[in-house]
Nucleic acid binder design. Structure first.
Length: 774
DNA sequence: GGTTAGGGTTTG
């Protein structure tokens, strides 16, 4: 290995590479003889191994000259060193921050970052066969042990007037300006926003992310945002914040008294009491700042010609005009004070309800959405609640119209993102949508009272946003996939039958539970047959926190141990790799990580195939409590059965070069792997009776998803939700629910010594042409 | 470790 360890620091001066000339770092320059020289210094910064574009690996470290008089310490005493390929991995595993290293076989280059990092004008590159490192591992210092056990506070937040250039920080702020994400010329979407806090400093933030759903969910000025791991930078003489590696954003409603519910895109983020207090304090402060109170959205009834305004509304229908323009038909339950322009569109180009009752006609607004906004508008489903930002009320003067007749108003969402122009979907539970929803509901009630012969309004209101279009244009049904040749029977007949028996029935879903789809996902132990809930992130984070409290780095003879700094936490994460695997590709290694938080685990697991969180007990490695996953594989998490697994293990039998899956890891660690499973209880009805039936063993077939994949994939969760909403549209009346052809298995189970009959939906799958659209 | 963009007196 090109990284060698020596026992004594003095060996670096005397025994190692005696033929080479030591150069003090301040004396090093581009003309120095790199071939016959060595440098020595303390590792003051050590970055992670990162993969670069060509499939190579890179690690950056900073080493500092130690052998200097105090007076001569200068910026030239610290130098950037880049390690490439296996050298990077070896360095990462063998060298810790604080160690003294001797480097040779380097290339000296001009440092492109001299101006920004104020370090040595040169940097060193360590690659190729001649590069080598000797390291004297420093003893674990008391301060390092202390930092490993201290866990609070988890994050520190920097006031916006105390930002220093180039520092990676966590901040809280109140949003005073924001734009919806727009595509850049690079690979990402960009959101720009401006925030402020009690210090009154105003700081622009630029968020880059390839995924639209990762961008901060800001609905209005006055929302509160928490940013983690953003980099401070000066631009145009002002401080700005820029996303950096592992950044995250969580936003909150800014109104005093509204629930402090974090809006996050990532499923894993830390949110505790301290965050709640910070949000509440910021809300109080913002309420006292007249400039910060958010401009309320303007109802249609208050719109004046030529004004720009934000509108909250429900989408009724949409139609494509051309590639650069879409028409959205919306309402907000109020009546505009001006006559509205009706845009003529062929009936068959509408999606959703284009024809409406006279009463509603007066309340619907046609909105022309241009250019870049078409992309978002295309994805909208009738029924969705929307907010349109910087909408323009344009009076359209008809040339033949007499001057005393008021012009008809049309609404335009112009192209571009200036002034925050854009549109976004609002979740229907948003606090500031509730007045709008109550208003729409009252119209729906009135329509019922009057028995208006037009149920389109009810249709839109009572059907969930996603399914309005579908309910009209798409078919939904189930088919039996078994080969039973059975006469269809009634539910009453099924209940009279003696189990075990299989029946075919035709029934509707009267209700189902759990209503929160994520609660349908369970963990099943094939060994002891127990079913457990999937722990939520709060529970898991707590297990990590517990382990953090008790842990001192463990040491195992079979593992190579190294450490890295937890960014901004003043704590060291310890990493163990089985010796046999050290040379494997970093991404496929089985890693054991100690002293880290769930957040950190989520960041790191994105880059590795298999990571096992561990803690130590008497310096021996031990798994965490089984309420937390014992294994992280990218987005996926695997759990061990509490009853059937051991939390201690001897040396895991690993051999290099293999690709490990969750079964291999579980076996090597003595863990009984829990399987993901979907479990839903339906109440079926068919006019003769009602009957509770489980959907469990054949649930994957029913939904066309894998339970394990669904656990880590929002799209699949949405798909399950979508299907449930078809089976049982929320708020729907019986007549509107589909009739399903089902295969039912009736069987007996022992329950407290008594036989009980259970029913399961088996051999049945859902069909509907929305699958192809999805 | 970091390319994109870095709000702005709008308009079909």
């Amino acid at each position: 290995m090109p990284v060698h360890t020596v026992k004594n620091a003095s060996d670096l001066d005397t025994r190692v590479l005696p033929s080479l000339q030591r150069i003090l770092l301040p004396n090093l320059n581009l003309m120095s003889d790199a071939v016959h020289s060595s440098v020595k210094g303390k590792v003051v910064q050590k970055g992670p191994v990162v993969s670069c574009r060509q499939g190579d690996y890179l690690l950056k470290a900073v080493i500092q000259e130690e052998d200097l008089q105090q007076s001569s310490v200068s910026q030239q005493a610290s130098i950037n060193v880049f390690f490439f390929g296996t050298m990077a991995k070896d360095f990462s595993l063998s060298v810790s921050q604080g160690d003294i290293v001797l480097l040779a076989g380097f290339i000296i280059s001009k440092s492109p970052t001299e101006q920004t990092d104020r370090l040595h004008p040169c940097h060193l590159e360590m690659s190729g066969p001649d590069a080598c490192v000797y390291v004297c591992t420093s003893a674990v210092s008391p301060s390092r042990e202390l930092s490993a056990v201290s866990s609070e506070p988890r994050y520190t937040y920097v006031p916006l007037n105390e930002l220093k250039p180039r520092r990676i920080v966590n901040v809280y702020g109140v949003v005073i300006f924001f734009k919806q994400p727009f595509p850049t010329k690079g690979t990402d979407y960009c959101s720009t926003l401006k925030i402020t806090d009690q210090s009154n400093a105003k700081v622009g933030c630029t968020i880059f992310s390839e995924r639209l759903e990762d961008h901060p969910k800001i609905f209005t000025i006055g929302d509160i945002i928490r940013l983690h791991r953003v980099k401070a930078q000066v631009f145009n003489e002002s401080m700005t914040l820029l996303t950096s590696l592992g950044w995250s954003a969580v936003t909150f409603d800014g109104a005093i008294g509204s629930p402090v519910e974090p809006r996050a895109s990532s499923r894993t983020f830390h949110f505790g009491e301290a965050d709640k207090r910070t949000v509440e304090t910021l809300r109080q402060w913002a309420a006292s700042q007249p400039l910060l109170t958010s401009e309320p959205t303007v109802p249609l009834s208050s719109v004046q010609p030529r004004m720009y305004f934000d509108l909250s509304c429900q989408l009724l229908a949409k139609a494509c005009i051309d590639s650069r323009c879409m028409l959205l038909k919306v309402w907000d339950g109020t009546k505009c004070g001006y006559p509205l322009l009706d845009v003529a569109v062929a009936t068959d180009t509408w999606e959703g309800q284009s024809t409406t009752s006279k009463d509603r006609e007066d309340m619907t607004a046609n909105i022309l959405v241009y250019d870049n906004h078409v992309e978002v508008a295309k994805t909208l489903k009738p029924g969705t609640f929307l907010r349109l930002y910087n909408l323009h009320a344009v009076p359209q003067r008809d040339s033949e119209q007499p001057p005393d007749v008021p012009s008809r108003l049309s609404f335009h969402l112009h192209g571009g993102t200036s002034f925050g122009r854009g549109l976004r979907v609002l979740p229907s539970h948003s606090p500031d949508l509730q007045p709008l929803k109550r208003l729409l509901e009252s119209h729906a009630d009135r329509a019922v009272e009057k028995e208006v012969n037009d149920d389109t309004l009810l249709e839109v209101w009572y059907t969930p946003p996603e399914s309005v279009g579908a309910a009209i244009t798409e078919e939904f049904y189930t088919v039996q996939t078994c080969r039973h040749t059975l006469q269809q029977v009634s539910l009453a007949h099924v209940k009279r039958s003696t189990p075990p028996v299989v029946c075919h029935v035709r029934a509707q879903v009267r209700s189902y539970k759990p209503r929160k789809l994520y609660q349908c996902l369970k963990l099943f132990c094939p060994q002891c047959k127990s079913i457990e809930e999937v722990p939520d992130d709060g529970t898991i984070a707590q297990v990590f926190q517990e382990a953090l409290r008790n842990s001192l780095p463990c040491s195992e003879h079979w593992a190579v141990t190294s450490s890295m700094d937890a960014p901004g936490a003043g704590r060291v994460i310890t990493m163990h790799v089985a010796s046999d695997m050290v040379l494997d590709n970093t991404h496929s290694q089985l890693l054991f990580l100690e002293s880290l938080t769930l957040d950190e685990m989520c960041v790191i697991s994105g880059m590795h195939k298999n990571i096992v969180p561990v803690q130590s007990e008497n310096r021996r490695m031990k798994l965490l409590d089984f309420s937390a996953p014992f294994l992280f594989c990218g987005d996926k998490r695997y759990y061990g059965c509490k009853r059937c697994s051991r939390s201690t293990f001897v040396e895991p039998v690993v051999s290099g070069g293999e690709m490990w899956d969750e079964h291999d890891v579980a076996k090597a660690l003595g863990v009984q792997l829990m399987q993901y499973t979907l479990l839903i209880q339906f109440e079926l009805q068919d006019g003769t009776s009602t009957l509770d039936a489980l959907l469990w063993e054949d649930a994957e077939q029913f939904f066309h998803v894998s339970s394990a994949e669904t656990s880590a994939n929002q799209d699949l969760q949405d798909k399950v939700q979508l299907i449930m909403d078809r089976l049982h549209p929320p708020g729907s009346i019986t007549a509107k629910r589909p009739w399903l052809e089902l295969c039912l298995s009736a069987y007996s189970v022992k329950d407290n010594g008594r036989n009980r009959v259970c029913y399961q939906i088996t051999n049945t799958e859902t069909r509907g042409n929305f699958f192809t659209a999805h």
